[in-house]
């Protein structure tokens, strides 16, 4: 099936700003699905609220556009109640890690077979450019007019600590790699997290003098290195991309099947 056949053409054009990185993430996601040869009826996309979450409207899967921060909780209900479905959950950084932080941690811990894609542009775009937990100290935002003092954290480290069994990171500049990582994440049996650094030229770039969209993408090339690169040892500020963990662990739905078998024996 051609990539464009996964799109709901009648609901285009999309609502993202010119230069937004989220379209590139959509591109990587659909190419991953296409390469896996998945049928549209076997995929449920569950999203929350924000620019990133509108991705669910544009794809021709079963789509559930839910509440801010709660996508993983809705998705858990979909997956456990019908484990044969493939559940993909695109989220923004604020959606996944501020308001949705608790659900994120527990989805990682539970190891239920779903794929979370964190589209991290370090800002609340839809509400007009407030800082997020990913913005970091020194960043300017509409709610940090004098510079941000609110510390950030690392999505990858958070997911690893919470027990996710597949954790990876890429950027919209590295769209081919992102496609490959999403593909592997979907194939992984367990909870998988793929962070994709995305740009928001409208709200983040402009306030922080990062140039146009293309400049911001090029910046991702400069500040990232493959996992295990020697450059990282020399320059700890560099951000690693690639797969951080990929391990087998009991998957929640499969374990629940065993509980059902045990319970039915009485």
């Amino acid at each position: 099936m051609a990539v464009k056949d996964y799109i709901r053409q009648r609901f285009l054009p999309h609502m993202w700003c010119p230069g937004c990185g989220h379209g590139t993430v959509l591109n990587s996601l659909l190419r991953a699905v296409e390469r896996l040869g998945m049928s549209k009826n076997e995929i449920v996309m569950v999203s929350g609220i924000g620019c990133s979450s509108r991705i669910s409207g544009y794809v021709d899967f079963h789509t559930l556009h839910t509440l801010h921060g709660r996508a993983l909780a809705f998705a858990t209900g979909v997956k456990l109640s019908k484990p044969e479905l493939n559940v993909i959950v695109p989220m923004g950084d604020g959606d996944a890690l501020a308001i949705g932080g608790n659900h994120f941690i527990h989805a990682c811990r539970r190891n239920i077979d779903m794929t979370a894609i964190v589209m991290n542009n370090r800002i609340y775009g839809m509400t007009g450019g407030q800082f997020s937990p990913m913005s970091g100290v020194g960043i300017h935002a509409t709610t940090a007019p004098y510079a941000n003092i609110d510390r950030d954290f690392d999505v990858v480290e958070m997911a690893l600590a919470a027990g996710a069994t597949f954790v990876a990171r890429s950027t919209v500049y590295h769209a081919q790699q992102a496609t490959d990582l999403i593909k592997q994440a979907i194939l992984h049996e367990g909870f998988s997290v793929v962070e994709i650094l995305s740009q928001c030229p409208t709200h983040f770039g402009r306030k922080n003098k990062q140039g146009a969209a293309a400049d911001m993408m090029a910046h991702y090339k400069d500040i990232t290195v493959p996992v295990g690169s020697k450059k990282k040892a020399a320059n700890p500020e560099l951000i690693e991309r690639g797969i951080f963990v990929q391990k087998d662990a009991p998957e929640y739905c499969q374990e629940y099947d065993k509980i059902m078998q045990q319970a039915m024996k009485g």
Binding site: A73, T76, G77, L80, H106
Partner: peptide
């Protein structure tokens, strides 16, 4: 919050 979200998904 997660509980009611999950049952909506299950429905």
């Amino acid at each position: 919050i997660a509980s009611i979200a999950a049952i909506i998904g299950g429905s």
